[in-house]
């Protein structure tokens, strides 16, 4: 094949492709959509994803097949998404921490926000530092004062972020903490209720135990729907708050028109009764962001989180 013919052919392919593109976005979707979820079936994010899939398929008029691809906190699934065609028929519903947190913690992950297209967020995670309800301290400042009197206290951590928080608090206040590794949210609840640890980081599951567990500080920039009186860790002078949201991501290069359609359909979750029921049961607030806001949020949090991890001296493993 000569160079000229090859160039012509490429041009022809490009032309038909261009011609086809708008039509593609207009008909979208005309076949079932696959939605990857990077956690196991039955988890909280999976429940929300399945709820959202229901709404999306009503709005878009095509079935949405939820496929669980667990592994490395969603990184495996995100890599699979990257390899998928960017035609809008493979999307992923996941926590955005897979892009704005994982690269700073895992050496083998180099995601950046613009490696993906963002189709909007629908829920946010309400993480916080929690303690048994009968503990003698009621907020983070009081805890620090108590901890100075009681060195070698036990703190429960189930993620590198959780370790980072305690290390930063300890560094700033010259505390001596024993960090107890925990395996799951359920184990964290056990450790708190059984008074094995005096404080732990919760991803939000503590909200199910309002009478036994209290929150000392939120780890988000916003106040939580179920405990509006609790202040953010930023308010205690640490600037460590990191927001995590769940929503739709798609392979890089997916048509913006398709992303807009997905984003508009996702917005309907806000008012969908059965979706509201699901997230209310799991104590997850609905905080909708459209595609443009989601992209801006990703850029901002990626830079901010990177700064936090860097200044805390957290090395990716």
């Amino acid at each position: 094949m000569t160079l000229k013919r090859r160039a012509l052919l490429a041009l022809a392919v490009a032309a038909t492709g261009l011609a086809a593109l708008p039509a593609l976005a207009q008909d979208y979707p005309n076949k079932p959509i696959t939605m990857l979820v990077g956690y196991n079936a039955g988890g909280q994010t999976d429940l929300v994803a399945r709820g959202a899939a229901q709404v999306l398929s009503q709005e878009l008029g095509q079935p949405i097949n939820v496929v669980n691809v667990p592994g490395a906190g969603g990184v495996v699934s995100a890599k699979k998404l990257q390899e998928s065609p960017n035609d809008g028929y493979t999307i992923m519903f996941h926590a955005n921490s897979v892009v704005n947190s994982a690269p700073f913690l895992m050496k083998r992950v180099d995601f950046k926000p613009d490696d993906f297209e963002w189709g909007g967020f629908i829920t946010a995670y309400q993480g916080g530092l929690v303690a048994p309800a009968d503990a003698p301290y009621n907020d983070l400042a009081e805890f620090v004062a108590w901890a100075k009197e009681n060195p070698n206290f036990a703190y429960g951590a189930l993620s590198p972020e959780a370790r980072m928080y305690m290390n930063e608090i300890a560094k700033k206040n010259d505390l001596k903490a024993n960090i107890v590794p925990l395996n799951s949210g359920g184990e964290m609840i056990n450790a708190i209720l059984g008074h094995q640890v005096v404080m732990a980081l919760s991803g939000g599951i503590h909200a199910k135990y309002p009478d036994q567990i209290k929150m000392l500080a939120t780890l988000t920039t916003f106040r939580h729907s179920n405990a509006p009186e609790v202040k953010s860790i930023d308010d205690f002078g640490y600037s460590l708050a990191m927001d995590t949201r769940a929503g739709i991501m798609a392979p890089k290069g997916t048509d913006p028109a398709i992303m807009a359609k997905l984003s508009a359909a996702l917005a309907k979750c806000e008012t969908d009764e059965s979706f509201q029921k699901i997230v209310a049961a799991a104590n997850i607030p609905i905080i909708y962001m459209d595609a443009a806001a989601a992209k801006a949020e990703m850029e901002a949090t990626f830079a901010k989180n990177g700064e936090i991890y860097k200044s805390a001296g957290v090395e990716p493993q």
């Binding site: 039955g42 909280q44 429940l47 359920g186 609840i189 056990n190 209720l193 199910k208 135990y209 009478d211 036994q212 029921k277 699901i278 049961a281 799991a282």
Partner: peptide, 27 residues
């Protein structure tokens, strides 16, 4: 008795319980 999931299945059931207006625990 305490609202603590002792197994995967119990953890999944929590969601179902709450969904149907029953908060697992002593109350």
């Amino acid at each position: 008795a305490l609202g603590i999931p002792g197994s995967v299945i119990a953890a999944i059931l929590i969601a179902a319980f709450v969904l149907h207006g029953l908060t697992p625990g002593p109350l």
